[in-house]
Design a binder for these strands. Structure first.
Length: 937
RNA sequence: GCCGCGGUGGUGGAACUGGUAGACACGCAGGACUUAAAAUCCUGUGGCCCUAAAAGGCUGUGCGGGUUCAAGUCCCGCCCGCGGUACCA
């Protein structure tokens, strides 16, 4: 009987579904394990071979854990709200719900072919009202909470209201938000109107609406979060992004900066992802220092991480957007400053990033140096960012690269303050050296000077220690249709009190009112057009009923639903809670999370934030969602190109090109290429416009294409569809091969050449059970030592590999074991049975089939993973490599339990020893038992 | 620039705490079977030298140094590649 994978896989897919083999329920008698793959966004293009890599790895581990006796939660679902489906809807008019449903169906079909052990009963789809009801519910929790800095946790907004009504708000109050610019007494508070109170509360709510700078993408007609913008362009589509002030929703993630940072320590994540999150959060410790302004009563506060360098400060610079700029600019400089501001505004973000010009303008004002009393000119410059620190700096040209350039350009004096002669390799900004020209700091090491200056500044009350973070609040509204509606309605304007938070607002100037939980889900209504309105409002504004009801017309961003989906899997059908406490407590944190590293600062940070908030509010008993994170590498495609000669109807084979030809490379579909050879006729059918072109072939009549490794994508015609691979070799081979390609973290091109090795392996395995004539050749005999050793060597290897997810080496070990068993003609049942169980996570179909043939009524996937036994691995003799001065000379078999002295005797008895040592006396005899023997002469 | 990761045969990649570098697979070469091809099986396969052959020798993990009886692995100084990030004070 031959190994007929198609039949086998069809048979078991059906059976598994019928018997609900992978259904999992909470079972307190068993230890739980939660293995999760990042759920996909189902695009119309379907899966390519790169997508399942992480899923397969996760599935192997989940299956392994199950064999090890764990109760394993291994769910799958779909991230279904988002831009691509909506862009498609705008182009075609098809409702995104339809496109999405179709794509999901396709994805599921493809996934099921690969033989995953998902419990599909737990499937979740983020765009279904049953799911997004709870996304909305969580939004309400965010809206109705504030961050208590004293207790370092989120609390219901009621506690803040209670505080205000009994204590009011003073500048001394730790929670006082300087953005508010307002203090009040308890009595004031109690007399405030509803709108006024709400306006103040907006400064504390974890989800709040404000008028702020946002990344506006005109082409997409919507706002983007910082992590959705790359190099001044939108991550999706690559459209230019502008800075714009808009009224919109944000999440106060900045309050969690410190916890998001310190929480990383305990996590088993890759260094690179942790590092990326750390950089994104961007903690830096320094000081706020106040400079008095000449002829003004106000002060100017700067942020610096180098207070020690203050004696080197020769100017002060503020951001062009700084509030004080207009106030301090002198009449003489007024014109210049206005001119400069016009210039700054004309510069787009992209321009700013590409050409970093040193520009600036003197304001005419002077700051008074707090120690020397010197008058420092105040400049405004575009290199000072309004969003970071205080938007103002003290310029120290001697010790800061940018300040130095600035001073050089505008002829500002430099005062050297640090002697770095002791550190010849130190850069200008390195925190080393001895202080000079710095009054009471002179002679000190930089590190000590920083500390002393911090103390001094606080003592003199001209500043204080301050920790700054780069992390910004997360933009949370999208002027889009295909997303979760906000459970918010606006209070109709028209009352006496001030409109809304920002005075600039012009329309629907209202206070946002949270819907009641009982009103959820607030379902997404139908609209006539999916096009953005063009005036910055979402397509929901087209829906009259929606507008009449004063609902928020923006929708939530893509990451809303994906920031908590892992919690919903624990209890996906719950109607009365996002998940029950018991189930959340049982399944707890995700033990293993596998997904792409592109989510390093987006999804992974938001998910941690949501988890922490829910933890603070008492809904969870853990505040980190993902204990261990593994990022699978990308599988790249090998794109193919044909060379077309300029202005001639001619293509030239790539191996004939010498680089002097004039022409261009045209991407060609890789399905038309076999072993770099193009099927010319097929190419002409694919691209009829080239039907009458001439193809110059090489001596062997072959037309070769140029290959290039690129990201796999439909537009590059280099996509490999897993369905095709599975049809050709079967899912088991596909799974093995994806793992065999290399470590999962590694990016590598898909090269199908090697797949035959994996396919052959399975056929060799099959041959251990059936001979060429199809006779069953498994015997019920007692295994001997060699056979046991071969098996247990494998079992041990697999077990250690599993914990490191080092699946490529495991697959190799299986190959080696099967080779060995084939060689010694081992067809013994006990050996083969254990081999199958160990292999089951990797190749679930073939192992299931053979296991049944061995006479088992139960599924192999419910078996127990065989425990390796060290005894079988023990050697009787060991072949000691004997080296002289580190150079290997011979291998000598010695009994394993031989003592060191005896071994030395035996080695020294060897005749050849004289030759090796050249007759020189032996100085030392190094004897590493079980490893090596080395003689030093 | 800064941060992180890496550099091993023709290729993908192995190598536990420093201890016989190149497991496993592909590819390639030779052989068996076959009229032939495919498939399958067997043998060989880092490079160089020597040999009729066997045996043997030298060399070899990006480059240059160092520590050690022993270095792909540790230390110092470079080079290159990938990923992230950037007027963040």
């Amino acid at each position: 009987m031959e190994y007929r994978f198609a039949e086998i896989e069809e048979k078991w897919k059906k059976k598994w579904e019928e018997t609900q083999l992978y259904r999992v329920v909470e079972d307190p008698s068993k230890k739980k394990f939660y293995a999760l793959s990042m759920f996909p966004y189902p695009s119309g293009a379907g899966l390519h071979v790169g997508h399942p890599l992480g899923y397969i790895a996760c599935d192997i581990y989940a299956r392994y854990k199950r064999l090890k006796g764990y109760n394993v939660l291994h769910p799958m679902g779909f991230d279904a709200f988002g831009l691509p489906a909506e862009q498609y809807a705008i182009e075609t008019g098809t409702h995104p719900a339809q496109t999405t449903a179709k794509a999901i169906q396709r994805y599921k079909e493809q996934l099921n072919k690969i033989g995953f052990s998902y419990d599909w009963n737990r499937q979740i789809i983020t765009c279904e009202p049953g799911y997004y009801k709870w996304t909305q519910w969580i939004f309400l929790k965010l809206f109705n909470s504030w961050y208590n800095r004293e207790k370092q946790k989120a609390e219901p907004i009621e506690t803040l209201i209670k505080f205000f009504s009994s204590q009011g708000c003073t500048t001394e109050w730790r929670q006082f938000n300087p953005e508010l610019h307002e203090t009040f007494s308890a009595e004031d508070w109690n007399n405030f109107s509803f709108n006024k109170k709400e306006r103040i509360l907006q400064y504390y709510r974890l989800a709040y609406r404000s008028f702020t700078d946002v990344n506006w993408c005109p082409a997409l007609g919507c706002v983007l979060a910082n992590d959705e913008v790359k190099d001044g362009k939108s991550e999706r589509g690559g459209f230019p992004v502008e800075r714009k002030k808009m009224r919109q929703w944000s999440l106060r993630i900045t309050e969690y900066a410190e916890r998001l940072l310190s929480g990383l320590e305990q996590l088993k994540w890759s260094e690179s992802i942790k590092e990326q999150q750390k950089n994104w959060i961007g903690k830096s410790e320094g000081a706020l220092i106040e400079f008095r302004i000449k002829n003004h009563h106000i002060g100017l506060t700067v942020f610096t991480t180098r207070p020690d360098t203050i004696f080197g400060a020769t100017f002060v610079a503020i951001a062009p957007e700084h509030d004080l700029l207009q106030i301090i600019t002198t009449p003489e400089q007024e014109k210049e400053v206005q001119k400069y501001l016009t210039y700054v505004k004309s510069r787009t973000d992209v321009e700013r990033q590409q050409e970093k010009k040193v520009t600036g303008c003197f304001t005419g004002a002077y700051a008074i140096h707090p120690f020397t009393g010197a008058e420092l000119p105040i400049w405004t410059a575009e290199y000072i960012l309004s969003g970071y620190g205080t938007g103002a700096i003290m310029g120290v040209p001697a010790d800061d690269e940018r300040d130095k350039k600035f001073a050089e350009k505008f002829n500002i004096p430099v005062i050297e303050i640090i002697d770095k002669s002791m550190y010849p390799n130190a850069g200008i900004e390195d925190k080393v050296g001895i202080m000079i020209n710095s009054d009471f700091l002179n002679g000190m090491e930089v590190q000590d000077a920083i500390e002393l200056m911090l103390k001094k500044v606080e003592e003199l009350k001209i500043g204080k220690r301050k920790t700054n973070y780069k992390l910004r609040d997360a933009s949370f509204s999208r002027q889009r249709y295909w997303g979760e509606p906000f459970p918010i309605r606006y209070q109709v304007h028209g009352e006496a009190d001030s409109p809304f938070i920002d005075e600039q607002s012009e329309d629907e100037a209202n206070i946002p009112i949270a819907l009641d939980e009982s009103e959820l889900p607030l379902e997404l209504p139908p609209v006539e057009s999916f096009k953005p309105t063009g005036d910055g409002r979402s397509p929901l504004a087209h829906n009259k009923e929606w507008v009449t009801k004063k609902y928020e017309t923006d929708t939530m961003p893509g990451y809303a639903g994906s920031s908590w989906y892992f919690l919903r899997y624990t209890d996906p059908h719950n109607q009365s809670a996002f998940a029950s406490k018991e189930k959340l407590d049982y399944w707890g944190q995700v033990d293993l999370y596998i997904g792409g590293s592109e989510h390093a600062v987006g999804h992974l940070l938001y998910a941690r934030f949501f988890t922490k908030v829910l933890f603070d509010l008492g809904y969870l008993s853990f505040d980190e969602p993902f204990l261990r994170l593994v990022n699978q590498g990308m599988i790249q495609g090998r794109s193919a190109f044909v060379f077309q000669v300029t202005e001639e109807k001619k293509f030239i084979s790539a191996n004939l090109l010498n680089g002097n030809e004039q022409g261009r490379f045209i991407a060609c579909d890789i399905s038309l290429v076999d072993n770099d050879k193009l099927d010319i006729e097929a190419f002409k059918r694919w691209r009829p416009e080239y039907a009458d072109y001439i193809f110059i072939t090489d001596d062997e009549q072959n037309f070769k294409v140029k290959r290039e490794i690129e990201k796999m994508s439909k537009s590059k015609y280099n996509v490999i569809n897993p369905d095709e691979v599975i049809a050709k070799y079967g899912a088991d081979t596909f799974r093995l091969f994806e793992m065999f390609l290399g470590p999962i973290e590694l990016s590598k091109p898909w090269d199908e050449k090697g797949i035959s090795g994996c396919y052959n392996f399975l056929r060799k395995l099959w041959r251990l059970f059936y001979d060429h004539e199809g006779n069953w050749i498994v015997k019920d005999e007692t295994p001997d030592k060699t056979e046991l050793k071969s098996l247990h060597k494998l079992l041990k290897k697999v077990e250690t590999d599993m914990e490191q997810l080092s699946f490529n080496t495991s697959v190799s070990a299986f190959m080696k074991c099967v080779n060995e068993l084939t060689e010694i003609k081992c067809h013994k049942k006990t050996i083969l049975e254990q081999l199958l169980i160990a292999l089951a996570p990797f190749a679930p179909f073939i192992t299931e089939e053979l296991y049944e043939k061995l006479g088992h009524a139960n599924s192999i996937h419910l078996a127990k993973f065989p425990q390796f036994n060290e005894e079988y691995l023990a050697e009787e003799t060991f072949s000691y490599p004997v080296s002289v001065n580190g150079k290997l000379r011979a291998n000598i078999d010695l009994p394993l339990d031989i003592s060191e002295d005896e071994a030395r005797e035996r080695i020294l008895e060897l005749e050849a020893i004289q030759k090796w040592t050249d007759g020189k006396p032996i100085k030392k005899f190094i004897f590493v038992k079980g490893r090596i023997a080395n003689i030093v002469v």
